[in-house]
């Protein structure tokens, strides 16, 4: 089993994702440079956070043109698990692999803090061992994490069960106060129709060890690895 951690110019959470998979979960991880045209031999893909191309033009807009994104599309089409975190989520949106777009936080400020998420569905490879309704403490760190989509798209993704995580308070209630960036429907993460592509603004790779303040992020990676193991059988 081998997980690809993509590296674009300006990726900066690549080492953290690699550390979480390789050293915390003891699985095989490998950096893949954005000019690679193939993901053959990989069983899962992580598009890490960062400021690809300095966030110039729009977040994720220039990274979507990298050769590796063609390979990600093929990998996703074939059902492989893909997770885009923070800037990785933004790249997935710009590439059209996930619906909607990101705009600047309502506060107009970068925000780095722990938030609480409510798991809305266990249908994805990343949440299959996290029962619906589970609360997770995971940090956010972004300037443009205010999720936007038109009404019709929102209706569609809500109807299809594509909303995977919502921001909530400590008691699991989805309230405006618990929404750090103004996202529609307090959406923190969504998946594609098939469920194998997940995009989320919070950073699970930053909280896989208790000394980092929470180890809840580990559960997403464990889910992904168990999904891969099962499908290989």
């Amino acid at each position: 089993m081998k997980i690809a951690v993509l590296v674009f110019p300006g990726s900066n959470c690549d080492h953290d994702a690699y550390h979480a998979i390789k050293h915390v979960l003891a699985a095989d991880a490998q950096f893949v440079w954005h000019k690679e045209g193939s993901l053959d031999g990989f069983d899962g893909v992580v598009i890490p956070g960062g400021f690809t191309y300095g966030d110039y033009l729009r977040t994720g807009a220039l990274a979507k043109l990298s050769p590796v994104m063609g390979a990600v599309r093929r990998f996703a089409d074939s059902g492989g698990p893909v997770i885009g975190i923070c800037n990785g989520f933004q790249i997935l949106l710009e590439s059209g692999l996930l619906p909607g777009a990101m705009i600047v936080n309502e506060s107009l400020k970068f925000i780095c803090d722990y938030v609480t998420l409510r798991t809305e569905t266990a249908r994805t490879p990343f949440t299959r061992s996290i029962p619906e309704g589970t609360r997770l403490r995971i940090p956010v760190a972004h300037y443009q994490g205010n999720y936007f989509a038109d009404d019709e798209t929102i209706r569609r993704i809500e109807g299809n069960g594509q909303v995977v995580f919502r921001y909530c308070d400590a008691g699991g209630n989805v309230t405006p106060e618990a929404n750090p960036n103004g996202s529609i429907g307090s959406i923190a993460g969504i998946c594609n129709e098939k469920g194998n592509v997940l995009g989320m603004m919070p950073h699970p790779e930053r909280c896989t060890e208790p000394e980092m303040g929470s180890a809840d992020g580990r559960r997403l990676f464990e889910s992904m690895l168990s999904h891969i193991k099962e499908n290989a059988r």
Binding site: D113, P139, A141, E209
Partner: peptide, 16 residues
């Protein structure tokens, strides 16, 4: 102030 700084990236920050 510090909420605007990414103080966790690189996952080494034991005391924030």
């Amino acid at each position: 102030v510090y909420r605007q700084y990414d103080y966790m990236i690189r996952t080494n920050t034991l005391v924030a």
